[in-house]
Nucleic acid binder design. Structure first.
Lengths: 339, 339
DNA sequence: GAGTACGATTACATCGTTGAAACAGCGTCG
DNA sequence: CGACGCTGTTTCAACGATGTAATCGTACTC
């Protein structure tokens, strides 16, 4: 079986605690002793038992990443960065999929998992300020990709509203005036959707154009299927749109599918823009204009914020991070708006 | 802080062990006692400390899923099913990304993680029979999507060779005789690639067609980029192919991008088939003909195989699972071969 | 009515690790 | 020279849970 400190201690002829000291890099160990212990450690291929260590230290070294669904490319790409950043700190990441269902999200917040967790990075869809405030679990928490202001919670996200405005302005700059939006949500807590809609409206208003709700049909979720279905409805309008801003790339790819299947040319007949910069959009035909959030930064900051809550600010060089961080984003113009 | 058995015991006025017995459903607890304890458990919102439980029991309840990369859609979709199946058993899944790098794969096999793990589901790319046989870690292991025969290892995969043959036969049935393959790998351990290539050759041979290596260029990896690049080379041939079988959907989507960007019509000028049935292929234009492995079955069987190794066969109803399971697959004909 | 069987509960040790504190040895300083 | 401080090492207890064995009470058997 796996070797314990006791076995190593016996082999090296020292006490268990001395071995522990060597393992943990404690300063006051005499060089000959240290060497002896290290030989024994190597010989037995010692690995610390994390269950025991965690039990003793009251920390688990495990953080959870709760997101709607792993098989949405945006979240898969983001998850890779979160795992990378966590692994650098010796943390293990477990993943909770909420499917965007309110009861699952609430369970996650209340710590449904028996598994104790040092921190939670949470990408919510339906949960709002009130649920967050009500939460009585004291586990460290960071909201990812969501901004709930005046709340008690750390969060990191890009400036969704500004990014949405920029996309819409880009579509306007093509000379299109009838611009649809796909991704509006009716739930009052769908913060991200609201911000993107606000940016869209803002750009229309600046251009002196009216906001027409018929051009911004609501969607239940953000999959290709939804984009495809809503696009059908938009194309069936008496005056179909000349451009469509989709609130994520999956919606855009669904909409693109519908438009192309109807024989429309993109961007000549209808221009198309998405949001998220998933890899699919870089290889679709036409390639997809989109907003590219700095996913690596989002992930890194989220992990740093957790780190700070868990260990206190001394750990991040004394420099306390703000509760709210705005990550970078770029507008990537591709063929679907400039073919 | 979180309540421990001790706190619950104090509140209920019984011993710690009695509370433990209630929590674990031990039979001989008097109903009034049980009720008292349960009230206390509820009042304090008791959650067992898994670190302590694991330390005592020598199991961790954690299994690792090691795969090349989470942001490849096939693996993201598969991961969702693995997590679902593991969660049903109360297990936690942690994810290791190897990026298909040999040294990372070897580390995973040797249990690089300090975190102790009850089992490992491993989707290898470069590791071969020898490395598996040399392994001295006794952790339960299941290979996923890979078949290494005569080895010591449990594995579950679809019949890659047959599926590849079926795809190629389908392309032949369209009347195409010049059929390329994208995804050949030169490494001797790239088992999956070899099997798919073998199926491709088999179908060609049955049709009396020669195997032309120029029509099966090697690829380093299986991303859209690789598919796009290799397709450039194929289209630059004196006699470009009339159909292309790509060993996964990402390669196919990359190849599709190249073909469409060159102004070719799919499938009229060149038919295209992939492998994996990722969601992208259902919404690309044209939609992508592909092999659909039963991902849910792959994941479920892999988890069952682990379960059996960890608990012994009694746990799966006495019925021991074989070491090798072939999961189902279907050929899905879509627009890219029948537009 | 003594002996036994069994239900219900508890005391205790233990899993592997680490913080606190004690201790031993040795040089330094007043 | 005795007190002190420093290095280097050990002893001990504790984290929270559970398996083992012991204990206690009651009902049942002969």
């Amino acid at each position: 079986m796996a070797a314990s400190l006791k076995d190593v201690a016996a082999l090296a002829g020292v006490s268990v605690k001395t071995v522990s000291n060597v393992v943990n890099g404690y300063t006051y160990v005499a060089p000959p002793t240290r060497e002896k212990v290290e030989r024994a450690l190597a010989e037995l291929d010692y690995r610390p038992n994390l269950s025991a260590r965690n039990l003793r230290q009251g920390r688990t070294g495990v953080v959870a990443l709760a997101l709607p669904e792993l098989d949405a490319p945006y979240f898969a790409e983001l998850t890779r960065f979160v795992i990378d950043a966590a692994t650098e700190r010796g943390w293990t990441v477990i993943i909770e999929q909420t499917d965007g269902r309110p009861e699952r999200e609430r369970q996650v917040l209340e710590g449904i998992r028996e598994q104790r967790i040092d921190g939670l990075i949470f990408s919510p869809i339906t949960v709002g300020r009130d649920e967050l405030a009500d939460r009585d679990d004291s586990t460290a928490l960071v909201l990812l990709g969501e901004r709930i202001f005046e709340g008690p919670t750390h969060h990191v996200a890009i400036d969704n509203q500004r990014a949405a405005r920029e996309v819409t302005e880009h579509l306007l700059s093509l000379g299109r005036t009838r611009i649809a939006a796909i991704g509006r949500q009716t739930s009052p807590n769908a913060n991200t959707a609201h911000l993107r809609l606000a940016g869209y409206k803002e750009a229309l208003a600046s251009a002196g154009l009216p906001y027409d709700e018929a051009l911004a049909p609501p969607t239940d979720s953000y999959h290709r299927r939804d984009g495809a279905e809503v696009m059908e409805r938009l194309l069936a309008l008496e005056e179909p749109p000349q451009a469509v801003f989709c609130f994520n790339d999956l919606l855009a790819l669904g909409a693109q599918r519908t438009a192309l299947a109807r024989g429309l040319r993109i961007p000549q007949d209808v221009a198309l823009a998405g949001f998220d910069d998933i890899e699919d959009g870089r290889y679709s035909t036409p390639t997809l204009t989109t907003v590219s959030p700095d996913k690596e930064q989002l992930a890194r900051v989220a992990v740093e914020m957790l780190e700070q809550q868990i260990y206190g600010s001394r750990h991040t060089g004394g420099r306390p991070l703000p509760r709210e961080v705005t990550a970078a984003h770029r507008l990537l113009v591709r063929e679907s708006t400039s073919g």
